[in-house]
Nucleic acid binder design. Structure first.
Lengths: 191, 191
DNA sequence: TAGAAGCGAGACATTATTGTCTCATTTGGG
DNA sequence: CCCAAATGAGACAATAATGTCTCGCTTCTA
């Protein structure tokens, strides 16, 4: 009957599950109190179908976060950050994270102030990027006096801004990564 | 009977109204779907009192935004930005905005993706800061090739990050303004 | 200190949302 | 081509939030 789990089942069911996650990410990012009925409608599906895929609101939210995490994790893992110097590493990270759009935004805002497990998983997913910052501070490509955690927060904030700016047409999405990386490295480089 | 308006009435009523706005800003920033009962409890007041001050949820949200706007506006207006060079202007702006904490965060996220009037009012409130950026680009203290709107978004993102970092104890709140300003100016300065 | 303004507690009807279920219909895969 | 899987529409009860109201008490303020 129901699907509930994740990556097994009929092809259309998987499509619909993905559509629901897309719609939920878009709708809930803007209006977190929106009803699940609105989410289903946005996805072009019936409310009952949403409940077939996600037990309740929390399960849906959890699934969004999980999916955003795995997307970000895969994107960073495939970017070859360990072999890069600081500037190139940040450039690549920005280039793969900005296209995640709302998903990335959710990663940084959703439940970010409470849920402990989620924060741990997020740190793990973003670890390759964090590693670039730590190495940069250690070898002097970034200011040695900076706290890497604070650098990470600022970079995340700048990436969020880039997502919004790209969405608003203020900057070229393909150039967003370079803009962020250049500004960040010269902003937090050594004297 | 009711108060409903804003700055008239008995002293304790004004106190309570402020407490409700404080509580609402804190609670709704973290959990936007929280019930108004929770908000009232957080404020240490009864639910009925909340309804005496704010007609409904939307009125409360509107009041939060209005208050955040006027605080930010007053803070920036009193900072003497027009007489500053770019670096000092950004330093001062950051110094007065970061202490607004959650209020500033709400200014940037709440309804930021839809409400047209609000966006206009926000632009007006932040105009002194935006003016610093425009002047900086024009006179070469910031990169002449940068789009001021994009610079504004990035600076806002960095300020948000500073608010969170200060809240998490990652940086000294009193130094947050300097950290942001220094990084921003060297990040987006001329070659 | 008296009267008015504000408050808490809670009852109450109303409404919206949630979560479950059924049944007829469509769709995909073997 | 056929059956199982998946869906839509909608009925339904249960729950939760909303908004209004009253009454007795407290706290300002003139």
């Amino acid at each position: 009957m129901a699907v509930q789990g994740e990556e097994h089942g009929r092809a259309d069911a998987l499509r619909n599950r993905a559509a629901l996650l897309d719609a939920a990410a878009d709708v809930l990012a803007v209006a977190p109190q929106a009803s699940l009925s609105e989410v289903a409608t946005r996805a072009g599906l019936g409310r009952a179908t949403l409940y077939r895929h996600f037990e309740n609101r929390d399960a849906l939210r959890a699934a969004i976060r999980t999916e955003a995490l795995s997307r970000a994790s895969a994107a960073l893992a495939g970017a070859g950050l360990p072999e890069c110097d600081t500037h190139e590493g940040i450039r690549r990270a920005a280039a793969v994270l900005v296209p995640l759009g709302m998903r990335f935004r959710i990663l940084l805002t959703e439940g970010a102030d409470n849920d402990e497990d989620f924060l741990a998983a997020r740190n793990e997913a973003l670890e390759p990027l964090f590693g670039v910052l730590v190495r940069g501070v250690a070898n002097g490509e970034l200011s040695r006096s900076a706290n890497p955690a604070w650098l990470g927060l600022v970079l995340a904030g700048m990436l969020m801004s880039a997502v919004r700016a790209a969405g608003a047409g203020l900057i070229d999405p393909d150039r967003a990564g370079d803009l962020v990386a250049n500004a960040f490295v010269s902003g937090f480089g050594p004297r």
